[in-house]
């Protein structure tokens, strides 16, 4: 099964569910601790001893999202949210805070195990926690914090540079296509095709989701941390 040395922390105010899950994960070889509130966990002061966190969002006192932000500031451990909340806000806020995956309750224990495996695979291929990127203009490459890099053509480099300079606010389609000399006429999707190919290239080379976000009917923006070197 998963690495039996992995130390896992469950923070869920639903004690019954937490205990059932803890028992199952222990049976799978994990070393598991359970906390029923964020305050208890913080008081314990043992955050750095865990390789993995399974966190509920609706915690009493310190909310799950705040707890993830605190954890992410000093830990590169895997974080999976297991929550009954279904709204788009829940998922978005959880992932923005720095979680690696979101599982919506009801969730089977096998699914938790599968999620741990997926996130572990990411962690073992380089960076734990949130991915950061460096755009090297001199080397014409986009380097991922996991050590892998994607080689870029002049057009791709220019495109990423423009996006990185524009920041999270993004850049509209017309400006982007004009600046990289891509012809956008009528229903042509030349820009979309270029971004699609760029994303694919980055993802295949770095094994990470490309840091480019589509702003529907507006343009594109950078997502996450991208610095220009």
């Amino acid at each position: 099964m998963a690495a039996d040395t992995q130390r896992l922390c469950i923070i869920d105010d639903d004690k019954d569910y937490g205990e059932f899950l803890a028992d199952f994960l222990r049976s799978q070889g994990f070393d598991v601790d359970l906390f029923t509130s964020g305050a208890d966990f913080i008081r314990d002061g043992t955050a750095d001893r865990y390789d993995f966190f399974l966190i509920d969002l609706g915690l009493p006192g310190i909310d799950g999202v705040d707890l993830i932000i605190l954890l992410r500031a000093k830990s590169r451990a895997g974080i999976i949210i297991i929550s009954g909340r279904m709204g788009p806000d829940a998922f978005n806020s959880g992932l923005s805070a720095g979680a690696d995956m979101f599982l919506n309750k009801p969730v089977r224990f096998d699914q938790v195990l599968q999620a741990i495996k997926t996130v572990s695979r990411r962690i073992t291929t380089g960076d734990g926690g949130q991915t950061s990127w460096t755009l090297s203009v001199r080397a014409s490459e986009l380097k991922c914090s996991n050590g892998l890099a994607a080689q870029l053509t002049a057009l791709e480099l220019r495109m990423l540079q423009l996006l990185a300079e524009a920041g999270e606010g993004g850049i509209d389609r017309m400006s982007l296509s004009a600046n990289v000399s891509i012809q956008e006429t009528g229903s042509s999707r030349n820009l979309d095709a270029a971004v699609f190919r760029l994303r694919k290239k980055i993802e295949q080379a770095t094994q990470r989701p490309a840091p480019i976000r589509t702003l529907h009917a507006i343009g594109y923006s950078i997502t996450g941390q991208v610095s220009i070197d």
């Binding site: 639903d14 569910y17 059932f20 009954g84 309750k105 089977r108 224990f109």
Partner: peptide
């Protein structure tokens, strides 16, 4: 409703 169902499911899984 979903929360207790989730717990019942968890108990059954155990």
């Amino acid at each position: 409703v979903r929360q207790p169902l989730n717990n019942a499911s968890a108990a059954l899984q155990s």
